[in-house]
Design a protein around this nucleic acid. Structure first.
Length: 276
DNA sequence: AAGGACCGCAACCGCCCAGAG
DNA sequence: TCTCTGGGCGGTTGCGGTCCT
């Protein structure tokens, strides 16, 4: 059965909104609100517009709390971090940036931020997080911060289910990794000495990984494993060492061996593990 | 100065989901 | 339980402005 159109397309106006239409819509909404029905709203307000168009115009442009102007570095970081963990769920990302709309962020990502990350010196800043309570990291040098550069080269699309977010034909991973020695007082970060190669990793789909037991998942001596996926089948209770994965949606998880595992975070989202 | 290329953004399209009946 | 409807969302398009040759 076909879906009934939300409005009579022949009789509604399309295209850019005039200042008069903006004023009419704004005045109506300020006085009456949406009334819980966007479809009926344009008729009530005397507008020859589709209800969805009115909703979009209000949410993306007329709302009083809309923030205008360029995005700050902090906002860049939040967008980048959230994109890395949840992908293109713009409304969720927008909810973390007061005054920004999903449309704004989507446009900004597609036109500027994505390119910015590809450019020279591209990096996606992340916060450092320490898991000092984890016994596996006690008295060892361990990683607690990773910095990804250009996490999206040559990737056709983000398929959260089973694709890795780098070009597997390339020989090096699109990321830099820093280590922190927990015994030192200055907590200086320094780049990991060993260059990490794509060939160091075996890539597994989340479906494949979901079937692994803790012991088998952690038992890959002298090789890295890496996978991604929404709720990637890698839970705290399964892995035993994952600190808190409530926000884990699309991070990478990788490890070198069973010893000295430490979490790596992308923003607040666990990104993976590296051995110290 | 003119015209083409490029860029950014507003707006539309169509699908999905949840809730009501 | 099923169907219908509106809201919400992500992807895409098209237009206007700016830049470049």
């Amino acid at each position: 059965m076909g879906r009934a159109p939300c409005c009579d397309k022949a009789s509604v106006k399309k295209g850019p909104w005039s200042p008069e239409e903006d004023a009419t819509l704004k005045k109506f909404l300020e006085k009456h609100g949406t009334g819980g029905n966007w479809i009926a709203l344009p008729h009530k307000a005397g507008l020859k517009r589709c209800g969805k168009s009115c909703r979009l115009r209000w949410l993306n442009y007329l709302r009083p709390d809309i923030k205008r102007g360029g995005f700050t570095e902090e906002e860049d970081m939040i967008i980048c971090s959230l994109f890395g963990s949840i992908g293109s769920r713009w409304s969720v990302i927008a909810s973390q940036l007061p005054g920004r709309t999903d449309n704004d962020i989507k446009n900004y990502w597609n036109t500027k931020l994505k390119k910015k990350l590809f450019m020279a010196g591209n990096s996606c800043p992340m916060t450092a997080t320490t898991d000092n309570n984890n016994e596996t990291t006690k008295n060892i040098s361990y990683l607690n911060l990773a910095e990804i550069s250009a996490p999206i080269p040559k990737v056709e699309s983000y398929d959260y289910g089973n694709s890795a977010c780098f070009d597997s034909s390339s020989s090096t991973l699109p990321m830099q990794v820093y280590v922190q020695n927990c015994d030192s007082n200055d907590h200086q970060l320094s780049p990991i000495s060993k260059p990490i190669q794509v060939s160091d990793f075996s890539i597994t789909s989340s479906q494949d990984v979901s079937g692994l037991s803790t012991s088998s998942a952690l038992g890959l001596e002298n090789s890295y494993s890496m996978w991604s996926g929404i709720n990637g089948g890698f839970k705290e209770e399964e892995a035993g060492v994952f600190p808190h994965d409530d926000n884990f949606l699309n991070g990478f998880e990788f490890q070198e061996d069973t010893r000295d595992l430490a979490p790596v975070f992308l923003g607040n989202s666990p990104l993976g593990y590296f051995a110290g």
